[in-house]
Computed example of a mutant assay.
Amino acid sequence: MTTVDVHQHLWSPELLAALRARREPPRLDGWTLLLDGEPPYEVPPAAHDPALRAAIAADDGLGLALVSLSAPIGVEWLPDAEARPLLDAYHEGALALPEPFGAWAAAGVRDIDAKGAAEDLDRGFAGLQLPANALADEDGYARCGPLLDLLEERDLPLFVHPGPAPGASAGPGWWPAMVPYVQQMHAAWFAFQAFGRPRRPRLRVCFALLAGLAPLHGERFAARGDGPARPDPGVFVETSSYGPRAVEAVVRALGVDAVVQGSDRPYAEPPQQPGFGLGGAAAYAFRIANPRRLLTG
């Protein structure tokens, strides 16, 4: 029985070197991350020390911690000639991480390279992460269709994570996490209902940060949208940065089988109570049973 965290970030030495080799954002100047439209961010070196992070994962009792490319830095939205060296570095580094780490693959969404994404997925990744702002409308689902085809062909899940938040520097430091990231996840949740699920009935998908709490709008969707929300055993949400009140509310909306543990380390930590105060059965569901269904079907 493997305990799983589906959402962590760990920048390998290969990815760090590739970001430092760039002369335009996104790039690293030493440990300072420089992005378009956002203030410089000082990256804590210890947060991306593989040995230290492996020890933390062991302390958390994890049998598997899935890392993903940090989609807000915008690698997936670069032209393919710029994105490919960073994607290659990410994939090489992620596969070299020590136990208990596994990883989500990543893919460009500006210039779709289905052949390259297929080769990456076939190297043993858990599934594919795509930025939420690439799957926010019908055009996004059409553009990313070849990537979603790969997941269905291989029976692998999709992980939807917030993408870049340009222009967020006008607000306080917490603004991107609280406004554009949440808005992106909210839009991606309803875009999947409208354009994703009808055309891809077999695709399993996990939305980061409880899908921006979009599931809590089910009553409004029933009144103003397409009728009552239907149970969907292939849709999951992960818990990063949220606590007992939000998780309990989402469980009431979606059921206990839809929630999986995600911590978003090193930007947040897992909850003090693995079941978010909902008991041992919920903890087992969030950390073991539900992640197994997400990852393996």
Rank of each mutant, 00 (worst) to 15 (best):
D139F: 06
G140E: 09
Y141W: 15
A142L: 13
G145T: 10
L147S: 10
L148Y: 10
L148V: 03
L150F: 06
L151M: 07
E152C: 04
E153G: 05
R154L: 14
L156D: 00
P157F: 07
L158I: 06
L158N: 10
L158D: 03
H161E: 02
H161R: 06
P162L: 00
G163P: 08
P164L: 04
A165G: 08
A165L: 02
P166H: 04
A168F: 05
S169R: 13
S169L: 07
S169C: 04
A170Q: 14
G171V: 13
G171S: 13
P172D: 11
G173V: 02
G173F: 05
W174V: 14
W175D: 03
P176E: 07
P180R: 09
Y181R: 09
Y181D: 03
Q183T: 15
Q184M: 05
H186L: 04
A188T: 09
W189A: 02
F192G: 04
Q193F: 13
A194D: 13
A194S: 11
F195Y: 15
F195C: 08
P198H: 07
P198L: 07
R199Y: 12
L203D: 08
R204F: 08
V205P: 00
F207G: 06
A208V: 02
L209T: 10
G212F: 01
L216M: 05
L216N: 00
L216S: 05
H217Q: 14
G218M: 10
E219H: 14
F221E: 15
A223Q: 13
A223L: 12
A223K: 14
R224K: 13
R224E: 14
G225H: 09
G227K: 06
R230C: 08
R230P: 00
P231L: 00
P231G: 00
P231K: 00
D232S: 08
G234K: 07
G234T: 10
G234M: 04
V235C: 09
V235G: 01
E238K: 10
T239N: 01
T239L: 00
S240M: 01
S240A: 15
P244T: 14
A246E: 15
E248W: 01
E248D: 13
E248S: 15
A249L: 04
V250F: 04
V250Q: 01
